[in-house]
């Protein structure tokens, strides 16, 4: 499952991909994947193990110019982005139509909830990151795609 985020607006937009804890909903940005077959949910993120999620770093904040795209699961460029384990590990058990849904939620008013729990770097780095997070627009974006399994 390939994921791509595109800036369809006229201004540059800062954005952050799938970080440690994003998929479990432990930190922002939240990237919530789910796979459904009809009304049944057949795959979703596993249990929250512990909240020790890694840091947000400057390299993790990308600025998309108008029309620009990025893969939020690609660690290229030194970003700490992770694959979406829910999609990566999913194997259809039976033929049928499966709906893959991915929601990006950045609507967190407290920028500290983006920073993670350890490896926070210096106070100056942390302050700089909080500034950067404040510039990320608060959105809820949902994408779906249907896959027919024969």
């Amino acid at each position: 499952m390939r994921v791509e985020v595109e800036n369809t607006g006229a201004s540059p937009v800062p954005c952050v991909g799938v970080l440690d804890g994003s998929e479990s909903g432990l930190r922002y940005p939240r990237w919530a994947p789910v796979v459904r077959r009809g009304s049944e949910t057949v795959a979703r993120p596993g249990p929250v193990e512990d909240p020790l999620v890694g840091p947000l770093r400057r390299a993790d904040v990308v600025t998309l110019s108008p029309g620009g795209t990025f893969d939020p699961t690609s660690a290229e460029g030194g970003r700490a982005y992770l694959p979406l384990s829910t999609f990566a590990a999913f194997r259809p058990a039976a033929p049928g139509r499966y709906t893959f849904e991915l929601a990006l939620d950045t609507r967190e008013p407290e920028p500290e909830r983006w920073l993670g729990r350890f490896g926070q770097g210096t106070d100056a780095e942390r302050a700089g990151l909080l500034m950067a997070v404040r510039r990320i627009p608060a959105v809820l974006l949902v994408a779906t795609v249907d896959v027919d399994v024969g």
Binding site: G46, P47, E49, P83, S85, A89, R91
Partner: peptide, 28 residues
């Protein structure tokens, strides 16, 4: 696979993902 393929106490079962094409996830 970026550490997700580690068979370790320190991995999460549901995040386990060895290099393709091996299956990942909790059962694997």
């Amino acid at each position: 696979n970026g550490g997700l393929g580690d068979l370790s106490w320190m991995n999460y079962a549901w995040k386990f993902q060895p290099p393709a094409p091996a299956p990942g996830g909790e059962a694997a």
